[in-house]
Every structure is written in C-alpha cells, then in structure tokens.
Design a protein around this nucleic acid. Structure first.
Lengths: 194, 194
DNA sequence: GTGTGCATGTAATGAGTTACATGATTAC
DNA sequence: GTAATCATGTAACTCATTACATGCACAC
C-alpha cells in the first residue's frame, strides 16, 4: 500500500504498454482506461516523480524540448506485477440510479420511468460503442500481446450494458404494474395519519 | 448541491421509509442500501443535525433515554423529491478487476484465470443472495408501497451478477486461447531489447 | 456486576478533483 | 503573429473513511 494507491498501478500499467510522456499517459488513461477506471490527473505527475525516484521508471528525451518520455524499468515491471497481484480493494458502491429508484415511491412513477428509459438508451448506445471498439481494436492491434486482455475488458463493458438493458425492461414492466398514482408524483405527500 | 452531497439523499430517503434513530439509520444504510450505495458513517450524524436545523427532519423521543428518533417532515419530503430529481452525478468508475485484467500480459495468464474464476464464483454467490432476498422481501413486505421499488434494485443486482457470469465465461474462453506462456507469469520479464 | 449491543458523536487523516499557472511548438 | 495543442506541474479544496471516545441499558 505505498500510498498513491492505485494511481501507481494505472501509471505503471500504461507505461508497460508503451513509453509515453506524462501528457500522453493522462490521455491514455482518460480515453482507454476510461471505461472502467479513472485517475485524477493532478496525481499523475507526482506519482511519476515518485516512481522515478524509486527507479521504477526512467525519464528520457521527449518528443519536444523540455518534455520527457517515461520508460518503465525492469524494477518497475516487477513492481507492477506486485501491485496487480494485490487483493482487489473493492471501491464502495455508489449507484446514483439505483439510489433514486429505491426511493421511487417518493420520486414518483413517471420520473422513475424516465430514469429507466434513459438508462436503457445509454446502455444501448454504449453497447454499440463497445462493439465498434472491439472490432476496431481487433483490426488495428492485431497480433499485439495486449490485445486479448484489452478485448476482455471491452467485453465486460458489453455484458454490463446488456445486463442493464435486460434489467431496465424488467423494471419497466414492474413499474407498469404500479397504479400511476399521481399523489406520489408531485401532489401533496401522503402523510395521512398520526 | 448543498454539500453533504448525496449523504443527504440517503439519509432523507431512509427516514422517508420509516422514522429511525441515527444508529438504526446507519445500519439500514449498511445492510439495505449496501448493495448499491455506501455512506461514511462519520457523516450521518452531522448531516442529521444539519437537516434538523433546516427543518427537514424532527427529533423525537427515542426508544431509550438520550436517544432520538428522527422523523422526516413535509419540507423534508419535498427536499428529498428535489434531491432525487437532480441529475445523476456519475461517480468515476473504478473497477479493480478490469484494471488488473487490462494489464493481464504483465500479470500472467494463470493469475488472470484465478481472478476470473473468483469473480465468477462471487457473482454466483451474490446471484443466489439476490434471489433469496427478492423472495424474502416479497413475503415479508407484502403490500408495502416501497416494495416494488426495492425489488427493482434487487433485480438490478441479479442482472449485474448474471452479466458478470456470462462475461467471465467468455473471458475464460479467450484466456484459454492464449499460450500459457510462463515467461509472462513469474519468470524474467520479456524486456528483450534496447 | 459485567459484558454486549444500542446510541451519539468528533478528530485526524488521507485520497481525489479542480482550477490555476506557465510555457514551448506547430500549423495556419 | 496567433491560435490550438502539447506539455508540466502545483495549490486549494472537497470529500470520505477510520478510529477513537463516551455512556446507557438490558440480559445474564
């Protein structure tokens, strides 16, 4: 747990695929890892400096004057392997959609339906994106030893999206069974008694 | 965005289902919302105090001397409705499993397989739990106006777990297609050149 | 009378995000 | 020359978690 927590993993991992400038690294993390991981960019530079001091990465001449390309060292690869082998620290769940639906009685049937339709549309859109991405990557990165692993994570996104779609359909059906009671929607609260 | 960010929503939502002590609330959040939401308990008490000062909850005699039961007020219900209607602030994705698999070339085929088998087993276990939970709740809370909404969130958990299982099978099949190259596992890194 | 669980809170810490500040290079 | 983009960093701030501190009440 060398602090920098998982930022270290993401940074070393990115550099394990290819040497990059810090700038390129942060774009890679945003665009490529972005589907399932995020890093605060404010920590990438400090982490790179720390890793350099520990000898896990080396600074080389960058593509421009003043810029540096970072290259992972053998010790960095070992460190990455170590980090990847650590038990997965489950980040606390925070599903804003489910939080809203859970209190759906207060939110109202109509808004719940809207949320579900929106979630379903989002999932359908991202499912299409994942399919595209898988096809593009298979073609462009053909033969790369990283490809199968990358495809696995893309596939996870796809299955997740499919799960959301199936769930949304089910939930919409359940919603349809609830009397579209407008008193729970925007009218006076049902604080009848006591 | 009254700060206390979403803690406010969870607290008001919990009290919208029934009046509780702060202690009971934090257990409810842990046990019931726990599948898709988490709150740092250190924020529940301050949030309750803030809500009390704003008139969104009222403090009543608790079940013991010195303890208080909190009751949501009409303005609290209105506030909750407002909070639930706010756009969903997507929390940054942080999937530790996918982060590891993405760098699977470095981690090694064997450990990837272990991770996937573990994830699949976890998903199967929680799928069974969700099924149980749905059955139990349907029986125990029969007739509650909150029940259908609660069941929707349970169903989301189930579909999610099913998605993970399907994905894990696919990913394991992909893994099987990779030469179980032990050089990428624990042997010397493939830092051949330069 | 004592231990377990109910009950209430606060302080310290640490992690993560944003916004800011700065400058070089390249394309137009 | 000037706008966009590459490039590097830091400081301030918010947010969240953990651990700690305290005490009552009820069952045994």
């Amino acid at each position: 747990m060398a602090r920098r927590s998982q930022t270290e993993t993401a940074v070393l991992g990115g550099l394990s695929m290819q040497p990059m400038t810090a700038y390129a690294l942060r774009e890679a993390i945003r665009d490529v890892l972005g589907h399932f991981w995020s890093e605060s960019f404010g920590q990438i530079y400090p982490t790179l400096n720390a890793l350099e001091q520990q000898g896990h990465v080396e600074r080389r001449e960058g593509p421009r004057s003043g810029s540096s390309t970072f290259v992972i060292t053998a010790s960095g690869t070992a460190r990455l392997r170590e980090l990847l082998s650590e038990p997965i620290a489950a980040s606390p769940p925070r599903n804003g959609l489910l939080l809203r639906l859970f209190f759906g009685r207060t939110l109202g049937v109509r808004k719940c339906r809207e949320l579900l339709l929106e979630a379903k549309a989002d999932a359908e859109r991202s499912l299409a994106e994942y399919d595209d991405l898988a096809r593009t990557l298979s073609a462009e990165e053909e033969g790369s030893p990283d490809l199968p692993y990358v495809l696995m994570t893309v596939s996870a996104g796809g299955h997740g999206a499919e799960g959301v779609i199936a769930w949304a359909d089910e939930a919409l059906a359940m919603l349809a069974g609830i009397p579209a009671d407008d008193s729970t929607n925007d009218a006076t609260p049902t604080d009848g008694e006591s």
